[in-house]
Design a protein around this nucleic acid. Structure first.
Lengths: 207, 207, 207, 207
DNA sequence: CATGAATGAGCATTCATTCAT
DNA sequence: TATGAATGAATGCTCATTCAT
């Protein structure tokens, strides 16, 4: 990936310049994320993305050669972030059960803070605007979670079904949970909803 | 609703040819269903829908005043069909557990035969191309299933969580199952996948 | 002229049937008159004319082979009517001055009762939708008035300018008068306006 | 920039001809003026305007958001120009009679040089494609002439009729004169026609 | 790098006209 | 005759993309 970040001249992520528009590339991705989920890919003109990102129409094409390239980059960046959240939530040590739990919690927490990202993944994971290869590259960030489940199966705690199946069941459940819960304004009720949903999902996979 | 069905004169010119395209309205809906899921709403020109449906561009607009009206009608028709499947699968008599099971089986069976319809619902249930009111009208066809779950909860067999939550968890699970399984060509393996997934989903909701 | 009048079976203009829709041909012409002046020729769909005339879309084309033929027929019918009014207003005998005066009065009276017709002539007399030949045929109904003016010139009462010029000046003036006066709701004031305008036109603005 | 100037079949690329199309906005207005009068508003495709103006279809919509906005702008620009001609023809000093005369002459001269503009005003002054507010804004450029007439009335030289009425009679007469005279190829005869018509209008047809 | 005017293919929708009933 | 569904060319307008500045 061409990670050109103009104006990010080595001053670390805390430079003063960053406040309003860390850099244009990110501004474009942020604007796209929201607009694509709200209006669909074809429903969002590049000119609208540019306006929202605070740049000129032509500038967008300095960062992404085509609109398709933009969605690909966006998809990968979101998937990568989601994978990173999962991994960091799992932590380093500990047994698989703790790590699975940590990963799940971290994922949901992140999802509640970034519902647009979850919705984006959900909306575009079956979409034709994202190529097969991009999908696969996106999934690669989740392989680690796959291994965790396999370990649970080996340990005899998770049902002995194909790990992909288990993983996709969990993941779909989490996504649904996040989307439902993020619509709930009351934080208390939200917590409750998450707890109940998690129970419904996870209880299913354990023997 | 004005159920104008031109050329469907009640067995008059009932050639064999007629079977495939009972009337143009249906042909348009069928073509749209596939094209919308494959290419998105804005990604599908009305001209393409018309061509696929075997009619002239202008004709489409005799049946649906706008493209938006078309997607609304399509959404409702699919949701209605899905609801009807669920209800007929549940049957008339029997206890709630049998009915729940019947409904679930029927739904999955229908879904495997009509994966485009399931994918369509999945893709457009959060989409902005379908208005709030349309969503609600669509959901109305599923209220019956909601009642079944409530009964299970009262009977003490299903966890005492808000029925909406349980319902949406099950439904999301079913959708995921259908989409995954319909990609499996071997019917034996497909059956197996469905059985396993159903277990993962349903085991979660029972105490 | 093809004066086909279906349903006008010789009962004269007073048949009971006539009340609502004397005959379809007339209904079409009436509807067109208003719609064309209100929305222009290209701005008025034939379907709209048909609806307004209370007939089916296809029916219109039984009476007028094309939309162009319709406007031609309409133009001629209005011009003919206007010419007839002028002629009958002039009466049979009397000197040219009385006849000129009578014609003018009749014309304005008719114009105030049928402002759409006047506006229609005004709007389409320079328009490309009406062919040269049609224009000329339309003008032919006014030749009589032309002769009246020539007589006045010969009599030494009207300035010795080319009669066409005099005629067109008067006629433009009348049209403007009618259009302005027909916007005046108060009949008294309307009469006054007409009197003043007529004076300005016929006599000149200087004392 | 691709300086394509179709129809620039004169000298090389650096000729004095360039002056004719200072900018695209003006080119669009010029093309519209002619096409609208020749073919009507709805009868003129935007694509045709663009072609005639030597620009791409899309470009037109950079300058005028919609076709309606284009006609509004055109109407106002023509009315403004006509008003300016009148005012400059009246000059600064002199009595009202001289000024009235000067204005009339200037107006007719301008009209004979720009008959399309006169025809355009004539054609669209009653048209529904120009909104009420636009009409009023257009008229505002003529208020000055209104005052001149009022002065003439006060001076006891012009008949004591409502100035609006007098103004509209004169103005309609001038328009008719211009349109008739501009069809006359022989400049001598043209002058004569104008003189005669002006006399008819300003003084009246009776001796 | 950044800009935004210019481009022209593409799209939703309209509408004159036809024709089977 | 009368009907109105069907047709498909035409139209207003959009939008991804380019490029001179």
């Amino acid at each position: 990936m061409k990670d050109r970040r103009p104006g990010d001249g080595g001053g670390g992520p805390g430079t003063a310049m960053d406040e309003h528009q860390p850099d244009k590339r990110t501004a474009i991705l942020n604007a796209s994320l929201i607009l694509f989920t709200e209006r669909g890919f074809h429903g969002t003109p590049t000119s609208m993305i540019a306006r929202e990102a605070g740049i000129a129409t032509g500038t967008l094409f300095h960062y992404f050669k085509t609109k398709e390239e933009l969605i690909t980059a966006l998809y990968l960046s979101v998937k990568k972030e989601a994978g990173a959240v999962l991994r960091s939530g799992a932590g380093e040590g500990g047994d698989w059960e703790e790590r699975l739990d940590g990963a799940g919690r971290a994922y949901i927490e992140w999802g509640l803070e970034n519902p647009e990202k979850v919705r984006f993944m959900q909306q575009f994971c079956y979409s034709p605007f994202v190529s097969k290869e991009t999908h696969e590259e996106g999934i690669s960030h989740f392989l680690f979670f796959y291994d965790l489940i396999a370990e649970g199966i080996r340990a005899g705690r998770i049902k002995d079904y194909p790990p992909v199946l288990v993983l996709s069941t969990i993941s779909q459940g989490f996504v649904a949970t996040i989307l439902r819960a993020s619509a709930e304004p009351d934080p208390e009720k939200q917590k409750e909803m998450v707890a109940m949903s998690t129970d419904l999902i996870m209880h299913g996979i354990f023997r």
